[in-house]
Every structure is written in C-alpha cells, then in structure tokens.
C-alpha cells in the first residue's frame, strides 16, 4: 500500500525533492562580518544565530562492476546527540548558462541511532568523515549555512580535530518539489546582497575533480 503511494509520489515529482545550491567561501577573519550581515538579512534576526556542530560520515556501497555504486551522507549532531540525518543525493544537473544554480535531486531522512550499524550490516563501508561547525540561517525557504570544516586525526574521534583550511564554506540552498525554476532567481538575488563579502556561485564538482586528478 505504502509502496504504491510512494511510487505515485516519485512519478508525480513530489518525492524526491530537488535541491538548488550555490556555494562560496570566506576567509576566517571576515566570517564575523558575514554572520552579522546574514543576521540582518535573514529571519529571526533578534535571536542568536543557530549554531551547529555536526559529524558527517560518508558511506558507500560498492558491489560488482555490474552494480552502480551508491553513496549516502550521514550527519550526526554533536549538540543534540539523538539527531541523525541521512541524505541521498542524486546526479547533479549543472545546466547551461541560463540556469542560475546547481540542481540535484535529494532525499532527506531522519533516522534512529542504529543507522551506522544498519548501514554496515547491509554492506555499506565508511568512505571518509569530517566535522563541521558553524551557523545556520534561514530566510523563507532559503537556507544558508556558514560552516568550518575540520579533519579528524583519528577515525571516529570527534574531539581530536584540525581545521581543514583557513576559510569557511558558505552554502545557500533550497529544497523544493520538481519544477519550481523561480527559486533559482530568488537565490541569485539573495546572493547578490552578500557581495562583495562572499561570491556565491554554482560549482561544478565534476570539473573540479577532473582538474585535481
């Protein structure tokens, strides 16, 4: 019964959702200025910005060559330790110049704490992990995160960490059902207001990976 409803939902474009994404970075010394501006621009300006401190683990399932590998992103909040969040991200559509943002399908699932054991038992292996600390803002349905990424010196030890770079990752994203192209325009306008502090752009990860290799 549920599967039928679900299949309908998938066909109807309700699930999975599409994520529109812009990314940028800012050096640590200017982070406070950006946070301050975001506080002014976003909702709930009168309360303190919401801080997060997450441990992200990336698992993937690789079978035989005939099988398409599958990767999932697991986030575990180190502030609210019973919060676990699993995310599956589909293939990225970079689009042409007329498209303002990166678009990718994604599935966001809240899960219970047995998830690590569960993934391991059905064959997923831990690929890499990191710790992210930062602030979260929202304006309407737009979500802005300013996060500092840390590498973990010992596997699984979230206290023994070192910063990865001298800057912070800034991400602007919106998750909507299929076919709401208007969102890209809104995001571009918002990103415009953060200039020249931070330049939010659509980043082609595949090209970056190719350049790295």
């Amino acid at each position: 019964m549920y599967m039928d409803q679900l299949n309908q939902a998938v066909k109807g474009g309700i699930a999975p959702f599409h994520e529109y994404l812009l990314q940028g970075s800012i050096v640590d010394s200017s982070k406070d200025v950006l946070v301050h501006r975001l506080r002014g621009l976003c909702d709930n300006a009168d309360s303190n910005p919401e801080a997060f401190h997450d441990h992200e683990m990336i698992f993937s399932l690789k079978g035989s060559p005939q099988q398409q590998p599958m990767t999932v992103y697991l986030r575990h909040s180190l502030i609210q330790t019973d919060c676990w969040h699993l995310r599956y991200v589909g293939s990225t559509e970079f689009g042409d110049k007329t498209r303002q943002t990166l678009v990718r399908s994604c599935v966001d699932i809240g899960v219970s704490d047995s998830i690590v054991k569960f993934l391991n038992e059905i064959g997923f292996k831990l690929e890499y992990e990191f710790v992210a600390k930062g602030y979260f803002f929202h304006k309407g349905r737009m979500k802005v995160t300013v996060s500092k990424l840390f590498k973990m010196n010992i596997q699984g030890d979230v206290n023994n960490i070192d910063p990865l770079t001298l800057s912070c990752l800034v991400e602007l994203s919106v998750v909507v059902p299929t076919g709401q192209e208007q969102v890209g325009e809104d995001m571009k306008n918002f990103a415009e207001q953060l200039k020249p502090l931070v330049q939010l752009e659509k980043v082609d990860h595949r090209r970056q990976q190719q350049a790295a290799t």
Binding site: D32, V33, H36, R37, R39, G40, A45, D46
Partner: peptide, 17 residues
C-alpha cells in the same frame, strides 16, 4: 565606522520590540 561591525540590527529590533 564599519557598520557591519556594530550590532545595529539587533539593537534596532530590540528597541522596536
């Protein structure tokens, strides 16, 4: 003054409220 460095937004909102 660097306006961005002053807690203007919060103060304005506080006093408005």
């Amino acid at each position: 003054p660097a306006i961005d460095k002053l807690p203007v937004y919060q103060q304005i909102i506080q006093s408005y409220k």
